[in-house]
Design a binder for these strands. Structure first.
Lengths: 226, 226
DNA sequence: CCGTAAATGTCGTCG
DNA sequence: CGACGACGTTTACGG
């Protein structure tokens, strides 16, 4: 990883054109060749960047002390042009390969847990399958209730209006299948906004709030007392 | 801006829980107090971060040379806990305020171009107006076809399912206006996904792919030969 | 590699 | 402050 603090201007020509006037910024060059330009605010987003794979050509017409140009190019022909007036800091550091991030609490995990414990939705529920395919995308969970009627479940971490819309589209399609219809909808999330509840009720979709810790608790062997 | 290269492990507890095992990484502390943790790959996204506003508490129990803890907290109570084993580099740089990015547009430009060249949609089409107002927001373009029937156009750079939903809502409203009904829908984008096409067809909405260069070419004076 | 959905999305704007 | 839509979205996952 190379860290450069420099007075520079930046031009990006690619999916759009963008320009940064001359100012002091951090140039971050990573081991994969990627380049990002950071201002002194906003944690997440660089002002400008080039994602890997890409390559950089550096030129310093007036020698090592003077200004220079970096031209960063990728396969698609997108370009990041960095014009450097002055370099205030330039250091390199070998970090090695990162062991990577372990996440807990995402939607995929919720889906796994609910599929394993489909009885959470009601007694006698049986799983048909996860990621049940339709022409407009997979339904999170398809199952049958105690009466044998089909139920489509959409799972979100946060239940908002667009999730209800998504489930509505699936239900419309699924209900055209004579082998499945009538298909009922269940909207399951850790938290559901009032707006989403109103829309769901209007569409005849029932809402279920999921207790992540409870679902995980039943599943996690380490939490069992016996 | 403060740049720290350190052997560290990181735990995030907030909207989810995440853990990074001990490894060499870049810690980037910006003037707004934000903190991000970068590995030596990927230009855009840090491994972990805390967005501003947030505050950091640093403790070094064994003195300046030894390991330490950074606890970064925000208003919502989310926490980023950084355990530092060793610091290899630590520098501060005053960058000042950035003049900011100038972008040269995408979707707005597409809309202008298509409005100017509404005949792209078919012979005899006439523009009624851009940004035609409705109760739930403006329709990108309203026009009439050769037969004088009303057509609502939704324009996206990338045509996906959300765009079809948006246009559907507009059509529902517009068709309640006795002066306009029947209103037909056209979904126009540089590229349209298969599932968006399926949904559009299902809703009786036609799809048009836009050639940005061709639209611009007709418009751009610099490309004219005479 | 393409298509689709999730994201600690982030970041504007507008009510 | 919350909802909505755009983003050079980026990123992960499945066929």
């Amino acid at each position: 990883m190379r860290l450069v603090i420099a007075r520079c201007s930046v031009d990006y020509v690619g999916r759009l054109t963008a320009h940064l006037p001359m100012a002091l910024r951090l140039l971050l060059v990573k081991a994969d060749g990627s380049v990002s330009v950071h201002a002194d605010d906003r944690a997440y987003k660089p002002l400008n960047w080039m994602s890997p794979p890409c390559s950089t050509r550096e030129t310093y017409p007036d020698g090592a002390g003077g200004g220079g140009h970096w031209t960063v190019t990728n396969k698609a022909g997108e370009q990041l042009l960095i014009t450097i007036e002055e370099i205030l800091h330039d250091s390199r550091h070998d970090l090695g390969v990162d062991p990577g991030l372990r996440k807990d609490g995402v939607e995929a995990h919720l889906q796994e847990l609910l599929a394993e414990q489909i009885g959470t939705l009601g007694d006698g529920y049986r799983l048909v399958r996860r990621e049940y395919p339709t022409a407009i995308g997979p339904v999170d969970i398809l199952c049958r209730d105690a009466a044998g009627l089909t139920v489509a479940v959409e799972i979100k971490r946060r239940g908002e209006i667009d999730g209800v819309e998504q489930l509505t589209r699936y239900l419309e399609l699924l209900n055209r299948d004579p082998l499945l219809t009538p298909v009922r909808g269940v909207f399951a999330a850790q938290a559901i906004t009032p707006q989403a509840r109103v829309l769901a009720a209007d569409r005849g979709i029932s809402c279920v709030t999921l207790d992540y810790d409870a679902l995980r608790g039943v599943d996690d062997p380490s939490s069992r007392l016996f």
